[in-house]
Design a protein around this nucleic acid. Structure first.
Length: 568
RNA sequence: UGGCCAGUGGUGUAAUGGUAACACUCCAGAUUUUGGUUCUGUCAUUCUUGGUUCGACUCCAGGCUGGCCAACCA
């Protein structure tokens, strides 16, 4: 009995993902002196996105779970694409997410000399040669997945000549695209990666870290596995497309080092999110062609974009946890990400009242000159959060949607003759609708019940709806940036012939408008998060200042009424 | 006509030879000074065919479907 319940507990706790299972097996077998050491290896050629966040949480989470370490390593082997700006942005994002690489900030470029020496070892062993074919010739002779390749005429070059040519490549004696160093493996391998892959190419560009020291640069394939080896990485976790590269990485290490220790590469399926694109190439295009306002645009799936949108690290970590780790291709519902941020903000965000589409309300039986201060609860989910006062006076704004002259069934809000509660204030009843000559509603006249102060109902009278409001004379005008999904299609890449993902861009992904907020928000600072009751979560934009408050809509509240309305 | 990987509700992830679980979504209801939150309930013969077994999501074989691989990118 006792034993049984213990086992059950363990079963619930267990349920490891397949990578954790592999690690625990390795641990049980005493591999690598029981070390667990992972790394997050971004290329600094763009900003990190939510897919990288999944990888960061995975790598850092594994290190934490098994008392190990996680390195941050920049894969900077291509000076044509990489920039310091990206390095800085990446570091900020990883840190913000809560992953700590301590003092282990590394660069593949730290290992250029070692890699160069290793290339020489391969040449000396007869496993590499300098090839003078051009790009088209190489591609042609590489064959196809169904047709074997053919050998380069330079394949059997003498070792001494290879050594000499490779040295002269490094010395800058040759132009770009005239010579490369290739591994000599197997031109007929069914695995294309093994058909004499390129190790080094000539690139005469300044590198963001090594400056002009080098004019030959190792390919990613020749740098990655060895970098893992140098850093003592035990579990090298990457996405599925590198699965076919694994034999190549193992081949390099097998030829170059003789220790029993080798990094173990494990591949998992990258994150795909509906209504967005994730490839860096496309994100870069959106930025460069100004479809969005930079990498940190709140519509971008970048970590910095999500941050500016109002997402929290906790919500992103929860999301990473919920999407899970597996090897099958997936398309995660954007709704899951939205669930995660609502879940987090519901507990944390202070409540406030704001009116997006104002409708003027005159309380005809309320004193012209009076202002009352009513107590509003900061967060009903968190009693510690306290209260604040909201000014109430004769002329108010309510939401246009919260009044209908001829309401449909199940509409509980304000309408002629109907009574509702103004949150934290009074019950009001609508008596008159004032219109202009075009029959447009100008304002509505209501009476309030003084006995209902604070929104209470001393006689037990029920109202079906509570609506939000602001006092006209006390309200602050602010800018609301209403963000929505960037793409209209669930999978933006699925397009008609002749168009690409950009054809699916949502023209209404950003709507900027004025709104009125209660004076409590006057001193809100960049990054502060609020729930505008009954509307959405908002966060203060970095461009906001005392003269002009700017609120970014993070995510709307769930709207059951909108759903009912749509279904009928 | 190649190689590698993967197929479990609408979505994602579990169950690792003992009779399909959890989360999101959806739908229905309860509660509510946010049509929010919270709570309850409904939703699957595990791609397919055959085999092994007392017993198969799990093991084996064939088929089907999807993804990846032919950058001097990572």
């Amino acid at each position: 009995m006792e034993e049984n319940s213990l086992n059950e507990k363990e079963d619930i706790k267990k349920s490891l993902n397949f990578i954790e299972q592999i690690i625990e097996e390795d641990l049980q077998n005493g591999k690598n002196e029981n070390r667990v050491h992972t790394r997050f290896p971004p290329e600094p050629n763009g900003y990190l996105h939510i897919g990288h966040a999944k990888s960061i949480c995975l790598n850092y989470g594994l290190a934490k779970r098994y008392n190990g370490k996680m390195n941050l390593r920049f894969d900077d082997t291509n000076p044509a694409k990489e920039e310091t700006e990206y390095v800085e942005a990446i570091k900020e994002d990883v840190k913000w997410l809560g992953a700590d690489w301590e003092d282990r900030e590394f660069y593949a470029s730290d290992y250029f000399e070692q890699l160069y020496q290793w290339a020489i070892v391969l040449i000396k062993k007869g496993f590499a040669y300098v090839c003078e074919l051009n790009a088209e010739q190489i591609a042609e002779m590489k064959g196809t997945p169904t047709r074997p390749g053919t050998a380069s005429p330079y394949r059997e070059r003498a070792t001494e000549e290879n050594l000499m040519l490779f040295a002269r490549m490094r010395a800058g004696e040759f132009e770009e695209n005239t010579k490369i160093l290739r591994a000599k493996i197997d031109m007929e391998s069914p695995n294309m990666q093994m058909r004499d892959p390129i190790l080094y190419r000539i690139i005469k560009k300044e590198h963001h870290r090594t400056g002009n020291k080098w004019c030959i640069y190792p390919m990613y394939d020749f740098a990655h596995g060895q970098s893992d080896y140098i850093e003592g990485i035990t579990h090298s976790i990457c996405t599925l497309e590198f699965e076919v590269h694994r034999p190549l990485y193992n081949w390099f290490l097998e030829k170059l080092v003789k220790t029993p220790y080798k990094p173990r590469q494990i591949e998992f399926a990258r994150l795909n999110l509906s209504y967005t694109v994730m490839s860096k190439r496309k994100l870069l295009e959106l930025v460069q062609k100004n479809y969005v306002n930079g990498w940190t645009d709140p519509r971008m799936p970048t970590i910095s974009g999500l941050r500016r949108r109002g997402y929290t690290p906790e919500a992103i970590r929860m999301f990473a946890e919920k999407v899970g780790i597996a090897k099958r291709d997936n398309l995660i519902d954007l709704g899951l990400l939205e669930f995660c941020i609502r879940e987090d903000l519901n507990k944390k965000a202070q409540r406030a009242m704001a009116v997006m589409n104002p409708l003027k309300v005159v309380i005809t039986n309320y004193d012209d000159t009076l202002t009352e201060y009513l107590e509003a609860i900061n967060n009903p989910e968190d009693v510690e959060a306290g209260t604040h006062d909201v000014p109430f006076s004769k002329i108010l704004y309510i939401e246009q949607e919260d009044f209908m002259e001829t309401p449909p069934k199940k509409y509980f809000r304000l309408s002629p003759g109907n009574e509702v509660r103004l949150r934290y204030a009074y019950f009001i009843k609508c008596n008159e609708v004032v219109k202009d000559e075009n029959n447009q509603i100008l304002e509505i006249h209501c009476t309030y019940d003084p006995a209902s102060k604070g929104g209470k109902s001393p006689d037990g009278r029920k109202v079906k709806s509570t609506i939000h409001w602001v006092s006209q004379q006390h309200a602050i005008k602010a800018e609301a940036r209403l963000y929505d999904r960037l793409f209209l299609a669930e999978v933006p890449d699925k397009t008609e012939d002749g168009t690409d993902y950009k054809a699916n861009l949502n023209p209404d992904s950003l709507i900027i408008k004025d709104c009125y907020v209660e004076p409590y928000l006057r001193n809100a600072k960049s990054g502060d998060k609020f729930q505008f009751e009954r509307i959405a979560y908002f966060c203060v934009d970095p461009e906001s200042n005392e003269d002009k408050l700017i609120f970014n809509r993070t995510v709307t509240l769930k709207d059951t009424w909108a759903k009912i309305n749509n279904n009928e």
